[in-house]
Design a protein around this nucleic acid. Sequence first.
DNA 1: GTATCGCTTGAAGTTAACTTCAAGTCAAGG
DNA 2: CCTTGACTTGAAGTTAACTTCAAGCGATAC
Lengths: 153, 153
Amino acid sequence: MLTIGEVSERANVATSALRFYEREGLISAVRSDGGQRRYQREVLRRVAFIRAAQRVGLTLDEIREALGTLPDERTPTAADWKRLSRSWRPLLDRRIAELERVRDKLDSCIGCGCLSLRICHLCNPDDIAAEEGPGPRWLLDEDAGDLLRSAAP
Amino acid sequence: MLTIGEVSERANVATSALRFYEREGLISAVRSDGGQRRYQREVLRRVAFIRAAQRVGLTLDEIREALGTLPDERTPTAADWKRLSRSWRPLLDRRIAELERVRDKLDSCIGCGCLSLRICHLCNPDDIAAEEGPGPRWLLDEDAGDLLRSAAP
DNA sequence: GTATCGCTTGAAGTTAACTTCAAGTCAAGG
DNA sequence: CCTTGACTTGAAGTTAACTTCAAGCGATAC
């Protein structure tokens, strides 16, 4: 059993983040007699998954959903984790393709020097993202959730 | 001269966002007798630049800085905009490369099924991003500002 | 046993990029 | 002239993913 400080150091994640993940239902812990959190070693893999998923671009909501497809009864196996990670691949591909599209349009727009509205494809791409909702909006992308759901067993 | 509603519709940007950009010093407007905003047509290009820059991944702070390198006296020319847009290229290249690295590591990690800390390169990449500060942190990247500054005349 | 460091909680703060709201004023058509 | 829709302001709310804080208990080394 690991203390929160040990998990924090090994996973390179702040203790405040671990408590936050617990509140958000992403990880869990048992308690010592004195009421302190004690983690099973498995939590390290879970946290690793969370951080890797964030690098890929998933939100914590999406990650929680993905973690929800893991078996409740037994400890997740390498195959379980593999299934989840594999589901990221198309998402990554799409994000990369999107950026490459922007780059190519940028090239052609530098060529024409336009940067004018409706004419320039760079300024008015035909995407759905960046249309709704507040908050930071850099590279919001639709239906990551669908991809995850399609990876469920 | 355009009203805020006209700019909003042509640029496909909410009026609230236009007022916000003005408060943030990204765009400006003169006022009608009654105190309403009246925009020069040039603001459309400016807004287009802002939105395109956001797609590339710049923050409004960085965009303000970039806009600050435009000449104060004369209306910016196509060459001015071209210079700014060109400075995005290396940034885009780096972001794409970063995602490709993640994708490749993902492949090898699916192969080994590891996803364990410190051992797995996907979970513990050697990057500086994702280390400091609150707020959403998907694909934070260092020194975009340097790139912009190096594009100044 | 006591000093010290680690752990606990809930509440509130942070950042980016906006949006929403209330309570009005302006402009244009009929 | 009057109605209606567009515009004004400042303040407060939103979202994600956390962090910071205060006030106090837990665990461990000496």
